[in-house]
Amino acid sequence: MSSPVTSVTRDAPTEPVPSSAVAGSSAYQFAVTSNGLTKRFRGGQVAVDHIDLAVPHGAVYGFLGPNGSGKTTTIRMLLGLVRPTAGTSTLLGGRIPEDSQQVLPSVGALVEGPAFHPYLSGRDNLRRLDAADRTADPATCAHRIAAALERVGLSAAAAKRFRNYSLGMRQRLGIAAALLQPRELLVLDEPTNGLDPQGTREVRALVTDLAATGVTVLLSTHLLSEVEQICTHVGVMHIGKLVAQSRLTDLRAQTAQRIRVQTAQPDRAAATLARLGLADIARRGEEVTALVGSARPEDVIAGLVHDEVPVIAFGPVPVNLEDVFVTLTGEGFGVSG
């Protein structure tokens, strides 16, 4: 991997945050970091291969990759559920797993789908989780549960047994559990899985709202559109490796910009573009596109006018992130073996 985009993954913080920083009210620059994080399961299969995550405080970080690319294993390691074979990670400045008891109360998580006791109601399931949380104040428990259920639109179904919840309701309850306490970091693994379009929109709006209050969100997804809609940063996983990590805007900017010309005489347009030194000229019907390269778009327009090309429309070709990722991973978003 030698494309300029991939280079951003190489220099994630190499210094683990000292645990002393956790003791008191501490400052951290990255809500999540990992350094050479690796998981090799028994049998030799490498699920996660030396990844260096850096999720800046306040970011909505899209952890993007096809199913089976190692996102969930990474998240399990970040939460201390799975022990890494090699490498270290920190959450909110605390090392995992050493400081997990200190930092995890400030982390809301949805890991590989919601999971609750089927014979308990939604409300009782949340009560159970709250009871397990040492930092939770029992006096405000009922109020916080009601607020969390309200926030995900489950108030009406609070007394229903989890067994009778639809897939979308289950997903909402999982998100409600992540919101039981004020959190600084939300780790949401495929939060819109199983939701209908309306629910998907609601969850995305919820994530955006939470991010606006300063909560950092690490959102894993296999949906590129989800990243494009709500994320500020993106990390791309491919067969256990983090092949790219940067701001979304930077990623777009690094993509070679193309312009398109719509004209009744595409041959003449193509000739002009060639004269102006634009590369990779492509014709399709009445449309001609080309890489801008070092040329300035305004000069291209002037050139076209000078050559009396009858231009109907002129503009940049919108950057298609999917193309970027296909370039990065060498394949589409199927299932990684």
């Binding site: 190489r10 220099d11 009210s25 951290y28 306040g58 909110l92 400045g93």
Partner: peptide
Amino acid sequence: ASSPATMVPAVGTGQRQPP
């Protein structure tokens, strides 16, 4: 792009209260 510091948004650094 290779420096993680450039990725820090304007919000600044987080202040974490001990639970």
